[in-house]
Amino acid sequence: MRRNPLWLWAAALAAYAFLYLPLLIVVLYSFNDSRLNAEWVGFTLHWYSELFNDANMLIAARNSLLIAATASLAATLLGTLAGLAIHRYKLRILPVLAITPVAMPEILLGVSLLLFFNLVFRPWLGLELGMWSVIVAHITFCIGFVTIVVRVSLLGMDESIFEAARDLGATPWQTFRLVTFPLILPAVMAGALMSFSLSLDDFVITFFTAGVGVSTLPLEIYSMIKIAVTPEVNAVSTLLMLLTLGMIVLASRIHGKAVRSIGV
């Protein structure tokens, strides 16, 4: 029997083409020296320089990075604590509650957050929708991811390691600081990077919770293509893609490296 039959290679190739060809076209046309996404004219960086001179785009980029940084930081903190709590208390309902927002259709989450903000935050705190509501919304859907990653990493660990630390003289806090935290750190980092890229890319929930006046990169791209898919859109999409890809690669490398070095 042959190890790798030809048809298997072909099927895999087709699947990857299906996944990456559209992305590749976007990247390609971001360098095309033509206003139309039709035929290849020649190589240019013109669209990128245009991008960096577009004030709206720069504001949107700044907003996106700010939102992603704040939301991922907060979500990582809360998600890590939730993951630890779920592991400690072994209550069946807790993991379900943490995962539900992750599995929920985004549009549902977006609508319900919008309702919640309008019913609770606006009348009670006098806050209008804006950056803060987007950040809160992003925290909401990122927590679940961090919680899952942290919990899974704890599940794979030998419980007696933590008992051993106590047994050898460490207080509960020392046990956390010297043993638990270093061991879950790779998962925490992976969760943070994942949250960052999820927040950076989010359109639906941001669309519902941003209100007027706040724009993020995905919102900006959307408003641009309402007119036409310009090469500038291709350029900003390419940059966004690059950033996300970098995050994902980094996250999986941190995680993979930790898994290898611990040897579990």
């Binding site: 007696s160 390691i161 008992e163 047994d167 050898l168 043993v179 070095s261 611990i262 040897g263 579990v264």
Partner: peptide
């Protein structure tokens, strides 16, 4: 007093 665990429970990091 100290315990020696069946799984050894060495700190992997």
């Amino acid at each position: 007093l100290h315990t020696v665990f069946q799984s050894y429970a060495l700190f992997p990091h």
